[in-house]
């Protein structure tokens, strides 16, 4: 029995993530226990950690700091596979321009930028923000979490801000501009999209995470 800790810092709906991971565990016949928790002891003891997040970064960072989640994530990244999703991915960076500018955890070099109010598509059409729906992810380089996921598969996104980082992108998408939709750095894999809401491709990525040993 291996354990997956989903870090619960009180921001939004973690049930989707937990349910999807449990479902994948059953499908692959991997004995999995999912713990939705903020307890440092449980997170330290888990075999894998998921760092999710939805909502505004200022509120997320306030709770992350209050509960010392940054330390737990930093420690987990040293020793075991960590999957960061959406605002979880953004929280890893150094700084976000959301809410007038918010310092983030600085565990990964890079920053979080707004898509802008005058975002235009290829034909000059105005693009809506948030970027909401199914977009293609081009696999910028190979990674165990992409195994069996066809290149340019569509994943479900909902976000108004995106990550800028150099050299570690594993997935790239286009919405008015090209942006990093997934990156990997040693034990961490981070996605701007929601694998738990991305049907077959998303469940495959979660299954790969359950079998990935990290590094």
């Amino acid at each position: 029995m291996s354990t997956v800790a989903v870090i619960d810092y009180g921001m939004g709906n973690l049930h989707s993530v937990a349910k999807a991971v449990e479902h994948v565990g059953r499908e692959l016949a991997i004995g999995i226990k999912v713990d939705v928790t903020a307890q440092p002891r449980k997170i330290a003891a888990a075999d894998r950690v998921i760092f999710p997040g939805v909502g505004a970064i200022r509120d997320c960072m306030a709770e992350i700091r209050r509960l010392n989640v940054g330390e737990m994530v930093a420690e987990a990244m040293q020793t075991k596979p960590v999957l960061a999703i959406c605002v979880g991915m953004q929280a890893l960076m150094e700084h976000s321009e959301e809410n007038g500018g918010v310092d983030c955890l600085g565990l990964v070099p890079g920053e979080v930028r707004h898509f802008g109010d005058e975002l235009r598509g290829a034909a000059g059409t105005r693009l809506k923000v948030p970027h909401m729906g199914w977009n293609e992810v081009r696999q910028a380089r190979g990674h165990p979490l992409w195994e069996g996921v066809p290149d340019r598969s569509r994943f479900y996104f909902v976000h108004s801000y995106y990550v800028r980082t150099a050299g570690i992108a594993t997935g790239v998408s286009t919405y008015g501009k090209e942006f990093v939709s997934a990156f990997a750095d040693r034990n961490i894999f981070a996605t701007q999209f929601h694998p738990e809401k991305s049907q077959t491709a998303g469940l495959r990525l979660l299954g790969n995470f359950l079998r990935w040993a990290g590094e």
Binding site: N13, H15, S16, K19, A20, Y156, V158, K197, S198, L203
Partner: peptide
């Protein structure tokens, strides 16, 4: 495992909490 929206009778913050906890996105 695709997004799920729930509507009808959402009147209080607690109604939202209950639906999100049940698995609505």
């Amino acid at each position: 495992f695709i997004p799920l929206t729930v509507g009808g009778g959402i009147r209080k913050l607690d109604d939202i909490r209950v639906m999100l906890n049940a698995g609505a996105d």
